[in-house]
């Protein structure tokens, strides 16, 4: 009782209680997976870059045609110009410049600044859309499992329809209709991406529902709310965390793909937008297509490594 406070309405209020020892145990298990730690490290780096980078970097949208297609530092491009007077080819060598360490694109925009801006967009879209999707998925999954009967049936049939819907086509369609903005993209991915989570959480909750400790608390007269929030949700929490980590890369890729086909938010620079530019200058400025792709790849890889390690850390049967 000492840890519980009596609220003004006279109800027992439980403080948010985090089992430090359990967190410690999971962290110790996670630590053994070096790839997972490396993934986490890169995600943290990316987050810092996304939060603070844009204040330090130059304007990613600044166009300067004088310095277009500058190669990254350490590389150089050759340009041959036919000189009519001397009837020869004059070859000029353009080396990379320290003020644009990763080069510039075909409009002279600084690659480094654009990549930093892109990391902010990718993480933002990834986290927000996954958040919406998982919230919806968990809510509908637990609800469906708990209600059972026709409500469960209806919800699951609706999930079937959503799952069968050509996801990417729907995305393009809605973004085309409502106009390309980050908000729309986040909402659409969030509103369409909950199906897998709902199904998984539902089946997990269903199997939990028949377990003895739930039966026990029912026998003790616990209310539905109490069972859902005190027993079901905490028991699927690790599942949700793992699912979040593993669905973020899919969202990031979807946003990148959308921007890549020219349906990204024109007001912001994401990795997909840069790739779109780079696609058309593969022969003159390869780095414009290579650099954002590497960032995208490393981000997705990091989330996959980290999520995989998390799953093993949470799985009591897995040996780490």
């Amino acid at each position: 009782m000492s840890e519980e406070k009596i609220s003004r309405r006279g109800m027992i209020k439980k403080p948010v209680y985090i089992n430090r020892r359990l967190v410690r145990y999971y962290w110790d298990r996670l630590k053994k997976n070096k790839l997972s730690l490396a993934g986490l490290g890169f995600i943290v780096f990316l987050a810092l870059l996304g939060i603070f980078g844009p204040f330090l970097a130059a304007d990613p949208q600044h166009v300067d045609f004088d310095i277009k297609n500058l190669p990254p530092l350490g590389f150089s491009t050759q340009e041959s110009i036919y000189d009519i007077k001397t009837n020869t080819f004059a070859t000029t060598v353009n080396p990379g410049r320290p003020d644009h360490p990763l080069g510039t694109d075909s409009k002279g925009r600084d690659m480094l600044s654009m990549l930093i801006s892109g990391s902010r967009i990718s993480l933002l879209v990834g986290l927000l859309a996954t958040g919406i999707a998982l919230f919806l998925g968990t809510f509908l999954g637990v609800l469906s499992a708990y209600l059972g009967g026709w409500a469960d049936n209806l919800l699951m049939r609706f999930t079937d329809v959503m799952m069968t819907f050509p996801f990417f086509l729907l995305l393009v369609l809605i973004v085309f209709i409502f106009g390309p903005s980050l908000t729309i993209i986040v909402i659409v991915i969030g509103l369409t991406g909950w199906t897998g989570a709902a199904r998984l959480i539902r089946s997990e909750a269903l199997s939990l529902r028949t377990r003895d400790f739930i039966t026990a608390s029912k026998a003790l007269g616990a209310s539905d709310n109490r069972i859902i929030f005190n027993h079901l949700i905490p028991n699927v929490a690790s599942l949700i965390i793992v699912m979040a980590t593993l669905s973020i890369p899919g969202v990031i890729m979807a946003e990148a793909a959308l921007s890549f086909i020219g349906m990204g938010d024109p007001m912001s620079t994401s990795w997909g937008t840069i790739l779109n530019t780079g696609q058309h200058s593969l022969d003159t400025a390869w780095w414009v297509a290579v650099e954002p792709g590497i960032m995208l790849f490393l981000t997705v890889l990091s989330f996959n490594f980290f999520g995989d390690g998390l799953r093993d850390a949470f799985d009591p049967k897995a040996s780490v």
Binding site: A256, A289, F297
Partner: peptide, 10 residues
């Protein structure tokens, strides 16, 4: 982890 469309570009 490699985005298919980027792999295509590469």
């Amino acid at each position: 982890s490699i985005p298919g469309f980027w792999l295509g570009l590469m």
